[in-house]
Design a protein around this nucleic acid. Structure first.
Lengths: 198, 198
DNA sequence: TTTTGTTGATTGACGGATCAATCAAAACTA
DNA sequence: TAGTTTTGATTGATCCGTCAATCAACAAAA
């Protein structure tokens, strides 16, 4: 049936299964057999395509980062003003595609694992830098650079904090409240900057 | 040599060793043998006193929570005004005793583990409630209750977010910057509330 | 004072289970 | 057939929890 090579298909299926398994278990403490089983293949095949478990986990994280990055790029492209750019980044972070239990659990687990794995740490650092840069691209035109840097740091910390707190609560994701909280912070920062300028 | 019971001594030593091991490894993925070795005893003894690994980890988390709680109580007792109460909680969260690499790593690891362990989840929920309550005890006298609730949520999220971001960066803890960021948020919230009241 | 239990503290060794990774062979496709 | 895809079986390592045995201190009895 498949006239195309199986490799990309299997890799993607295994990555999706890894996200599912991580979400179900709430940590990276998942077995290759579990992941492979969810993908409908044997654990040996997972090793065949990824070589080692760490490689599969790294690929999974890259996939999550890439998806977030793609959403962010798209939202930024549609933003007409600097202010809209900042709001776009905030909105994307809590969009239904990102603010899901499995994804939130994966983020948390990857943060922990990054303390041991240099590869994962590098990936998370890249994410942090990109988030900061995306935020600054709008903020820097709305307030002086030092104030913009502080606001970006605060927004980033708020997003991460709301993620971690969301992982703890087992109720449904309250994305709207999270966005409102961060937007409120942004509005206060902008008002303060405007006040200082006058 | 010791004519006193060894139990409390050993339990405390093992808890300290567990914090040390968790900090060194950056996750709860530590072996009983490692913990026991750091405490200078055999792994069998750790099992003798705690029964199971999960019990030791739960006791470790209780210890961390208790230490934070004691510091918070002390800081609150010395706070003369509602505003000082809020600042006291913020300051304690980033005090040298709390904002250490091992403790931050432990927090992060416990957040992950809480997704699997009902005991740890309960402990973290208690912590979240107490933090919220401590913050509200000051905020509620500085602004209307709904605004105070939002501010408390924001401050709590900021604290957690700064913790997680601190775990990622391997540089020394920048506690002063963290306190300044949260204090800035608090000041903005207070100013906005005062503005709405007039 | 010696002798003889008694109890708590501690450990080395081990069973049992889990899991990542490997490999040779089977199934499938062209 | 020749190449690719897939797997079952196996291995080696790790680790939790248990158990029988040792050791030191102390108490009771002789």
């Amino acid at each position: 049936m498949p006239r195309t090579g199986m490799e990309p298909v299997r890799r993607q299926a295994l990555i999706d299964a890894a996200i599912e398994a991580i979400g179900a278990r709430g940590s990276l403490d998942v077995t290759m057999a579990d992941i492979a089983g969810r993908a409908g293949v044997s654990s040996a095949l997972a090793h065949h395509y990824f070589g080692a478990k760490e490689a599969l986990l790294a690929a999974t994280m890259r996939h999550i980062l890439a998806a977030l990055g793609a959403d962010a790029r798209q939202a930024l492209a549609a933003a007409a003003s600097p202010r809209a750019r900042v709001s776009a980044i905030i909105r994307v972070s809590f969009s239904p595609a990102q603010f899901r239990p499995e994804i939130v659990a994966a983020w948390l687990a990857f943060y922990v694992e990054a303390q041991r794995s240099a590869v994962l740490k590098r990936l998370l650092t890249v994410y942090a830098r990109r988030l900061r840069s995306d935020l600054m691209s709008g903020l820097v035109r709305l307030m002086p650079r030092p104030a913009a840097a502080r606001a970006a740091e605060g927004i980033a910390a708020l997003i991460d904090g709301l993620y971690i707190r969301h992982a703890l609560a087992d109720r449904a994701p309250d994305a709207a409240a999270a966005v409102a909280l961060v937007e409120d912070y942004l509005a206060l920062q902008l008002a303060a900057a405007a006040g200082r300028a006058s």
